[in-house]
Computed example of a mutant assay.
Amino acid sequence: MAHFPGHGPGHGPGPGRRDDIVVGPLDLAARVDEALAVQAVAFGLGAEEVAVRRQIVLRHMTCPGARALGATTADGRLAGFVYGMPNDRTHWWSTVVEPYLRARGHEDWLDGSFVITELHVHPAHQNRGVGRALITAVTDTAAEPRSILSAIDTDSPARGLYHSLGYTDLARQVLFPSAPRPYAVMGAPLPLRRRTPRVR
């Protein structure tokens, strides 16, 4: 488990309240509504989108090898979550990205990869290493030699995080049905890259 020390009284979100965060196993099916509330704030989802994603998440968690981790505050609230599973070419996501990867000579990444399906951190807890801890922890236990994911194809903090972890672009401008913006598909060897301590 990863532990993130609080800011102390007067520095966390709320007067006199610590903001300790612990990363550990998450029963995502049991806490799906709480997790999707985090995703809705972090990703800007409306109620209809949340309802659709709820069914998708519950279905995903029945897939072989699917697992989730949560980042929980000292008072038990979910500050962030990640989940993923061994990639399966028959899943919808794979069927969409496959022609883009094939066109760039990266189709083999669909085999032997652990796919990060969702990773979200509530804005109040971002920029503290929570997302990094979640994704490294969930991939550290993967049997697969590499990881694959998709992210909105823009110069965002999320893409910066993935690049810092060793993910490289496998395909750009990937269009998912009904998604308003194109995505990039990224892949990295496992274990993910760790930060190198700076020498003073």
Rank of each mutant, 00 (worst) to 15 (best):
A79P: 02
W92A: 12
W92T: 13
G76A: 10
A74R: 09
M85N: 09
G84A: 09
S94T: 13
G70L: 00
L78C: 05
S94M: 09
R77N: 09
D75K: 05
A74D: 15
A74M: 11
R77L: 10
L78M: 09
G76I: 11
L78I: 15
Y83H: 09
M85A: 15
Y83Q: 06
L69K: 00
V97C: 03
A74Y: 08
T72Y: 05
L69A: 03
V97H: 01
S94Q: 09
S94E: 09
H91M: 12
G76P: 04
P86F: 06
W92C: 07
P86S: 11
L78G: 03
G80V: 05
L78Y: 04
W93A: 13
V96E: 00
V82E: 00
G80L: 02
M85P: 03
D88T: 09
T95N: 00
T95M: 04
D88F: 06
G76R: 05
W92Q: 11
G84T: 12
W92N: 10
G76D: 10
G76T: 13
R89A: 14
E98K: 06
P99R: 08
T72L: 10
V96S: 02
W93R: 07
H91S: 12
Y83R: 04
P86D: 13
T72W: 15
V96T: 09
V96R: 03
S94V: 10
T95H: 00
E98L: 10
R89Q: 14
A71S: 07
G76E: 09
G84N: 06
G84Q: 06
V96F: 00
V97Q: 01
A79S: 08
P86R: 08
L69C: 05
G80T: 05
F81M: 05
R89E: 15
D88N: 14
G80R: 03
L78V: 10
N87M: 15
V97I: 15
W93E: 15
P99T: 14
P86E: 13
R77G: 11
T90K: 08
E98G: 12
P99W: 10
R77E: 14
G76H: 09
W93K: 07
T73E: 05
V96D: 03
Y83A: 06
T72N: 02
R89S: 11
T90Q: 13
G84S: 08
G70S: 04
W93S: 12
T72V: 15
P99E: 12
A79F: 03
R77K: 11
D88L: 11
